[in-house]
Simulated assay, not measured.
Amino acid sequence: MADKTEKQDLAWRAIGGLAGLVTAWAARKAIGFAWEKTTGKKPPADNESLDIGLGEAIGYAVVMGVGMQVAQILVARTARRRYDAWKALRDAAREVTA
């Protein structure tokens, strides 16, 4: 049977995974919107297409990569802090009622 710490780790993995998916979706939408407002063009749908200039394809890839990573770091750290605070509060409540 799984012990308590293993269950908590599973809970964090589920929360972290869900936060990562939502963050990736939201960051992609936000970066695409910012790209369109900044350049006046839609984001490249296919960076391998020869219809898109090399500079534009590389620029979009760099902006998207950095933006996505920064967003995921910020959300993961915030989610972890909140999860740890919730876990500490829960454990303190269990000690009081025990």
Rank of each mutant, 00 (worst) to 15 (best):
R77P: 03
D84I: 08
D46V: 08
N47V: 15
E95K: 07
V75E: 00
D3I: 05
G67Y: 00
A92C: 07
A71F: 05
Q69P: 03
L54M: 11
A26Y: 02
A98C: 13
D9H: 08
R28K: 12
S49F: 09
G16L: 06
Q69Y: 12
K29R: 07
L18E: 09
A24I: 01
R28S: 15
L50K: 11
R28L: 13
L21T: 09
A79I: 06
E48Q: 13
W86Y: 15
D84R: 07
G59F: 01
A93P: 00
M1A: 12
T39H: 04
V96M: 06
T39E: 02
L10N: 10
A26G: 03
G40A: 10
A11L: 13
K7Y: 14
A34M: 11
S49Q: 07
L21P: 05
R28V: 11
D84S: 05
L18I: 15
A88V: 11
K29L: 13
P43A: 03
L21N: 12
A26L: 10
W35C: 05
W25A: 15
A85N: 03
R77N: 07
P43H: 06
I31N: 04
T39R: 01
Y83F: 15
L50T: 13
A19D: 05
L74H: 03
K7P: 08
I58S: 06
L21D: 10
D91I: 09
A45Y: 01
K37T: 10
A76S: 13
G55Y: 03
K29H: 09
D51P: 04
A93G: 06
N47H: 07
Q8K: 10
Q69K: 11
A45S: 12
I73E: 09
G40R: 04
V70H: 02
W12E: 03
T97W: 03
R82F: 06
P44S: 09
R82A: 12
R28D: 14
G32R: 00
T23H: 00
A92P: 03
A71N: 02
G16K: 04
I58F: 01
